[in-house]
Nucleic acid binder design. Structure first.
Lengths: 255, 255
DNA sequence: CGACGGGTTGACTGGATTCAAGCCACGTGG
DNA sequence: CCACGTGGCTTGAATCCAGTCAACCCGTCG
C-alpha cells in the first residue's frame, strides 16, 4: 500500500487527461461515487481518496482477514476476489472492471472476507471507509449513491446466484458472457467481440465448473453456433445479445 | 396492503407487550433499524412505518415487477422470496426470520426483483423507502446502520453462494442447518433442536437441489450420525455446532 | 533445449436428476 | 366414521451431466 499515492479530483470526463496529475489513470469518472456532487463534497472526497498503482497481474490488493479500512474503485484494469473452500481450493467470488467498486462485502465486518487480486495492470482509487461515512453523514446525495450501489450489488449477486444454482453449464456460460459484454460495452469496442480479462480457470471457478468442463462447454457452444473462439482471450458472440431484462430469459433452448 | 395498519414506536424490549397497541407483534426490537437512535429520530421513524398483518401462509407481500416503495422488517413469522427460472420453475432466493429486513434487493431499482411470500402466520413492519432515506440524511447513525445491514447481506449472500457452488449436497445441507440454527438460537429454544419454518421443497430449491436429492441427503446425514429427524419440521443436530467463523470449515469429512 | 503452466481432449466414474411408484398426514364430503 | 383425494415427502431404478484422472498440445521463460 506504500506505493505512489496521489490525491485526486473527480469532476467530469473532461478533466481526466490533464488535471494536475490527478486521476490521470481513471476511466470511470461518471461511475465515481463523487460524480454529480456539489463542489464542497467533491473537495472533501478528493481529500480522503488516494490513487494506487500500477498493480501488476497477480498482485494482491488486500488479503482475507486483513483489517477492513477502505473501499476501492477501479480506475483502470480489472480485479478478482477469491477465498478458499473447505478443502483448500481457491474459489473466485467476483470480477470487477473499470469503474466498479469493490471491498463492499467487508462493510459491517471488521475484516475483508476475501482476497483481492489484480488480473491486469491496474490502477485503483482507495476510499477510506470511515471518512467516507463522515462525508455521507452531511451529504445525502453521496449517501444515497452508496446505498444504491450496495442495493444493486445485492440484486446482481442474487441473480448470478440463481443462474449458477439452476442452470446448466451452457446457460451459465452464455449468461456470464452476455452480462460481461453488457458491462464492457460501456466502452463499445468492436460489436459482439468480447475480451476476457480473467483466465479461463478463474472463470470456470466463478461459474462453479471445473476448467475441463468449462473448456468443453465453450467448444460445444461454438459447435452450436452461439460463439466463435477468436483467440486465447477473445471471442465473438454470434447471436444478437439480449438487452437488459431480456437477459433474464436468454437462450432457453440451450442444452 | 390495505389491511389493519398502525403506527408503531420502537424503544426497548420493555415496551413490546403493552405500549399503546403499537408494535405488539414485534419480536425484533433490538434488531429494528430504529433501535438505539435518539428520541427525535425514533419519533420520525415511528411516523413513517406501518404494521401489517397477519399474513397467512402462502400469502403474497409483494410480487415481481411491482413498484418498489418499501422495505419490510419481520415482527414475527417468516418469509421467503422467490423468482421464476428461464424454463418456468420456481426458485427460492432467500429466507427471512423474525427481525430480518427484506426487500433490500430492490434498492437501486424501480421494481422488486422477486416475490415475497409469508411461510407462516406473519406480522410485518413496512418501512417506506424514500421517507427512510429522508431520515437517514440527517441521522448518520441510522444511515450507518442501514449501510451496515446492506454490507452484511452482501457478505452472507456471497458466502452462501460459495457453499452452493463448491460443496456437495451433504455439506450444503449441513451448512444451511447450522447457519439457520445460529439465527434461530437468538431465542435459544431447546439446545440443538431446529425447527424448519419452510417446506422441504423450498429448502431444496434454495440449496440448488431437487426435492428427491434433498430427501436422500437428509436420510444419509441421519445414517452418518450428523442429524436426527424428529418430526415433519423438526430435527436435532447431533454434532456440536461450530460457532461463527468456525462454520466456514465445518465438517470437511462429509461425503 | 527442457520445464512449466494454462488450456484442450479423451475415457471413465460418480453424484445428482429424472421418472416412477408408494407412503403418510390432512381435509373434505358422503 | 370411513372413503377418497390431495400435496408433501420418501424410496427405487435408470439416466445423464459434470467431475475425475490422465495424456497431450502449445506458448513462454529460464
Amino acid at each position: 500500500m506504500g506505493r505512489n499515492s496521489k490525491t485526486c479530483t473527480h469532476k467530469s470526463h473532461l478533466h481526466l487527461i490533464n488535471a494536475d496529475n490527478n486521476c490521470k489513470h481513471c476511466q470511470g469518472a461518471q461511475l465515481c461515487l463523487s460524480f454529480g456532487l456539489d463542489q464542497k463534497s467533491v473537495d472533501e472526497f478528493k481529500d480522503i481518496i488516494r490513487e494506487h498503482g500500477p498493480y501488476s497481474p497477480g498482485e494482491h490488493i488486500y488479503a482475507t482477514h486483513e483489517n477492513f479500512t477502505s473501499l476501492y474503485s477501479i480506475q483502470s484494469g480489472s480485479v478478482k476476489t477469491e477465498t478458499v473452500t473447505i478443502d483448500g481450493r481457491q474459489s473466485v467470488m467476483g470480477f470487477y472492471l473499470s469503474g466498479d467498486l469493490f471491498g463492499i462485502d467487508a462493510i459491517g465486518s471488521k475484516q475483508y472476507p476475501n482476497t483481492a487480486v489484480a488480473m491486469e495492470t491496474t490502477w485503483l482509487c482507495e476510499i477510506p471507509y470511515e471518512p467516507l461515512l463522515e462525508i455521507c453523514s452531511h451529504d445525502p446525495r453521496l449517501q444515497h449513491k452508496l446505498i444504491d450501489t450496495l442495493g444493486s450489488k445485492i440484486h446482481s449477486d442474487e441473480y448470478s446466484w440463481k443462474v449458477v444454482r439452476n442452470e446448466s453449464a451452457g446457460r451459465r456460460v452464455m449468461h456470464f458472457l452476455y452480462q460481461l459484454y453488457e458491462r464492457q460495452s460501456k466502452g463499445d469496442i468492436s460489436p459482439h467481440r468480447l475480451t476476457l480479462p480473467m483466465s479461463k480457470q478463474d472463470l470456470a471457478s466463478f461459474l462453479g465448473l471445473t476448467p475441463e468442463s468449462f473448456s468443453r462447454t465453450l467448444t460445444q457452444l461454438q459447435q452450436d453456433g452461439y460463439i466463435v473462439k477468436e483467440s486465447h482471450k477473445v471471442l465473438i458472440l454470434t447471436k444478437e445479445p439480449p438487452q437488459g431484462d431480456a437477459l433474464h430469459s436468454a437462450f432457453p433452448e440451450i442444452k
